[in-house]
Amino acid sequence: MTEMPMVRYENVSKRYGAFTVLDNLNLDVARGEKVSIIGPSGSGKTTVLRMLMTLESINGGTLWVDGEPMTHMSKNGRLVPADARHIRRIRAKIGMVFQSFNLFPHMTALGNCIEAPITVLGMGRKEAEERAAELLDMVGLSAKKDHYPGQLSGGQQQRVAIARALAMRPKIMLFDEVTSALDPELVGEVLQVIRRIGAEHDLTMLMVTHQMGFAKEFSDRVCFFYQGKICEQGPPAQIFGNPQNERTRQFLNAVLEAG
């Protein structure tokens, strides 16, 4: 038996009514691997991440995380739909950063970063604050830790959101177009932070991005989604340098022309 991947989508389907968003998706992400997901709007990229974060239910198939089924659990040797406790235990391994930050507006930057460690992990306040301060320092915001989200720029808010997710010590981090809501001059600071955590933390990362340059330089693998299917995947050099599929080529041409 080979080692289980960190994340496995096994024949996963997702439908909204009669509309199939994802059709029998199979995708493995190895431990520590950094995978970028690219593709045209509406191709189902966000849905891939949201299902893993349990923000969307799935209509078929199984999700595996760190060798365990997430959407199901084994009971007397059979797989049955997971209960809330099981889901929460698995979910503890995953962190997510949203396109629209979703910081808690009534808490300071520090407050955002200690809320979950204290209430979910049961960490002491002092320890949580120390760790949060470290993380805020790493994202370059130690001076802003007592600011409220409303007092921070978009780039700063997104960096707080990254620190907040890391404070839960996830093994897997999901990034959904985390720079799309930012003014162009603020994109760099956030990408810099992601580069840094990629290098310093032993994290498995899945990111949806429109920053082709970043995907090329940062990821181990790039998946091109088209109409709910992986149309082509491979190392960045291949996808960007020598795409095999006609659709991939069209998409990249269009994006590079616009960018």
Binding site: M53, L55, R88, G95, F98, N102, E115, A116, A165, M168
Partner: peptide
């Protein structure tokens, strides 16, 4: 906003904590 519920799920907050604190 819906994002507040979603961020709470992503941080694995319990439904009660989400309701009370967020």
């Amino acid at each position: 906003p819906r994002g507040q519920w979603e961020a709470s799920i992503a941080l694995n907050l319990s439904p009660w904590t989400t309701f009370k604190d967020i």
